[in-house]
Amino acid sequence: MPLVIGHRGSCGYRPENTLISFALAVELGADFVEMDVVPSADGVLVVRHDADLSDSTDVAARPEFAERRRTATIDGADVDGWFADDFTVAEIRTLRAVERHPDLRRHSARYDGQPVPTFAETLTWLAQLATEAGRPIGVYVEPKHPTYYRSIGKPVEDLLVKDLAAAGRDRADSPTFVQSFEIDPLHRVASMTEVRRVQLMGSGHGPYDRTAAGDPLLYSEMTTPSGLRRIAEYAVGIGPNKEMVLATDRTGQLAGLTGLVPAAHEAGLFVHPYTFRDENKYLAEPYRRGTDPSARGDGAAECEAFLRAGVDGLFTDFVDSAMAARAAWLRPERVLTSV
């Protein structure tokens, strides 16, 4: 059965990467919850999407940390802000999570003020939720910016594997996936643990670790049959941008399937595309409702189109929409049509 993966929890409804976002994803039925981790100054993984804390916490409004603001070069780009690796975990605990898109998700912003959890705390929390739910809750985790963190002496993959081992999630049969847009970090994880690995893919560029090393490899090259076979040597699946599965044209109209799903399956890889969101701003034109970018469209219908295309799971900000799509797709009376 295709997996429903709660992207940063169920962050269409709650601020991302918070315990209440993960709890809601589980309540709504997600099979896995996805999260991102970055290291603190004292080497503790915290659950945040970016090295820069500016957009997802209240750090910019905290005068006691004003002098921590600086510019760092991360993945080849200059970023101005406040960085997790400049704060101890005790200091990060004083920060409060905020909605990254308050204009788009005003309802979620009402839940601003949540604590920033550590990765270890989150794994403990999810184990408790799994016990209460009476079912396994999978973890899908991305160590962010691994090349950057390795360059400053904070190998994030090492910290990740340590926390997974402490939580008993470091076996090949654990309900756990480690994902990365880079390649070498997945090889390093493979050298330390049997936990399953997933190669993330974007559009129009390539893995930053290879770019930094002078290798012009592009994700488009990795989607060829030979590229997919190479991925299958170190990963069990791919996580492509959804446009790499079902393309749209410049007007937002559906342009057709790309052939990536059957090619990946031929190589023995599953396909979990990202990210499914219900707002019109993120939907293909056939699924939009009205012209307001923040209005909810028919996200469930878009998810169902991808399930019909043969994907093995979906990363979604709106777990309930993906669950409804899966229920519709599973109906015995459904009629499969081409997209």
Rank of each mutant, 00 (worst) to 15 (best):
P2E: 05
L3T: 08
G6R: 01
H7G: 03
G9L: 11
R14A: 08
R14C: 04
T18Q: 02
T18P: 03
L19S: 05
F22V: 05
A23V: 07
E27F: 03
E34T: 08
E34G: 03
M35A: 04
G43C: 08
V46A: 03
V46T: 10
H49E: 13
A61H: 13
E67A: 14
T71D: 01
D80E: 15
D80S: 15
F83I: 01
A84Y: 00
D85E: 15
D86E: 12
V89F: 02
E91V: 01
L95P: 00
E99D: 05
R100K: 13
H101R: 12
D103Y: 12
L104M: 14
R106D: 15
S108F: 06
D112A: 11
D112Q: 07
G113A: 12
E121A: 09
L123K: 00
L123Q: 03
L126N: 05
Q128F: 08
A130I: 09
I137V: 15
E142W: 04
H145L: 05
P146Y: 07
T147V: 11
D158K: 06
D163L: 11
A167S: 12
A167F: 09
G168D: 10
G168S: 06
F177S: 01
S180D: 02
I183A: 07
D184N: 13
H187S: 05
A190N: 15
E194C: 04
R197L: 06
G202M: 10
G204T: 12
T211C: 05
G214C: 09
P216W: 07
L217G: 05
E221Y: 08
T223Q: 11
P225Y: 12
S226F: 04
G227T: 11
I231K: 02
A232V: 10
E233N: 12
Y234G: 07
I238C: 07
A247I: 11
L254W: 12
G256Q: 11
G259Y: 11
V261N: 01
P262W: 06
P262F: 08
H265I: 10
L269Y: 02
K281H: 14
K281M: 14
Y282K: 04
L283I: 14
R288Y: 08
R289P: 02
A300V: 05
A301F: 10
A301N: 02
L307S: 07
G310N: 14
F318P: 00
A328H: 12
